[in-house]
Design a protein around this nucleic acid. Structure first.
Lengths: 182, 182
DNA sequence: TTTGTTTGATTGATCAGTCAATCAACAGCG
DNA sequence: CGCTGTTGATTGACTGATCAATCAAACAAA
């Protein structure tokens, strides 16, 4: 064998490249472009992932996993659960332009392919559950309704950040929190 | 000439077909599919629009125009300016699944092509301007901040409606208004 | 005839996926 | 230590399909 765990390394590189390429080129990414950015031949990319769809699915899973772990990490260290969820959502790590762009692409893809819809649904349910829990625990009346509002605000903030050249994460967090705590 | 104003009829049919096809097939629409849905040959579609990009641009312009006229119409007949803007935004006519899907696709496209970014920017600026005006006219303190909140809520509501099988427009309007008037 | 409409056929390019052929490490064996 | 077969890694070349765009020709109204 060439190197130990070559497969793991290659797959990771391909997933990262897929996220970046989807972010820049949208849905019409080519396997060749992903493979090139990951530093290998298109044939090898096909060898490790069954096909293009599986690469994209891997990319979306990675984005979801990164976001989830950021939220979980934030929750564990803070008393203000709501603020930490919102902060993690617009944190620079999850808010890189390429990542946000890839998110958007997956929203589009969710209207056609089952895997994207399923993954997106998991994200939405978990986010809402986290928000309801946070709002209830701080004694918010109508926590369920407020959770919907915050969830929509987070998604809307993502959407606007895509076209906004100047984006102030701090201000966005404050605005979102104010909408349900004012 | 074959029929009077054949060009106008053809172009209108192509734009509508483009919206529908973009909504269902995403970015990778084919000119052939658009032309088929519009009841003509692909070659004729190329004849009336310079190319695929111009068809998509026409589709986005149409969506923007429809949305604008809905908002304008709502504003003219109502005393509650804020409510009429929000209502028009999630009104069934602008909220058809295909239309929302096309919106999303254009958001993605806006990251790459100038025309999409420019059109999207116009929409965003106009929406914010309308919202600020409405909020100021009802004496809202911090109208500018509240306008940002409402704008993000509208966009976020769009985004969530895409994957939400059941969507209650009435409830969404109430929730959005409550977020800035409570 | 002239002018605009319409299409079938074609072209050139692009791309996902496949395959047979190299290449590199390692393990067993003498 | 050298020899060798095995196994996974890697790629260049190819295939089949798809698609945007073009064009010349057919067609219909004025």
């Amino acid at each position: 064998m060439a190197r130990p765990d070559s497969e793991g390394i290659r797959r990771k590189a391909l997933v990262n490249a897929a996220i970046a390429q989807v972010g820049t080129s949208g849905l019409d990414v080519t396997v060749a472009a992903i493979a090139r950015q990951a530093g290998m031949s298109p044939a090898l990319a096909h060898h490790y992932f069954g096909g293009k769809a599986q690469m994209l699915e891997g990319a979306m899973r990675q984005i979801l996993a990164d976001y989830s772990s950021a939220v979980r990490e934030g929750l564990s260290g803070s008393g203000d659960r709501l603020a930490s969820i919102v902060s993690a959502s617009v944190a620079p790590e999850n808010f890189r332009p390429l990542t946000v762009a890839a998110w958007l692409v997956f929203y589009v893809e969710a209207q056609r392919s089952d895997w994207a819809r399923r993954l997106l649904r998991i994200y939405q349910l978990r986010l809402r559950s986290n928000l309801r829990h946070a709002l209830r625990s701080e004694g918010h009346p109508r926590a369920a309704e407020a959770a919907e509002t915050v969830a929509a605000l987070i998604d809307g903030t993502y959407l606007r950040a895509v076209t906004e050249p100047r984006f102030d994460g701090r201000a966005a967090v404050a605005r979102i929190l104010a909408a349900v705590r004012a």
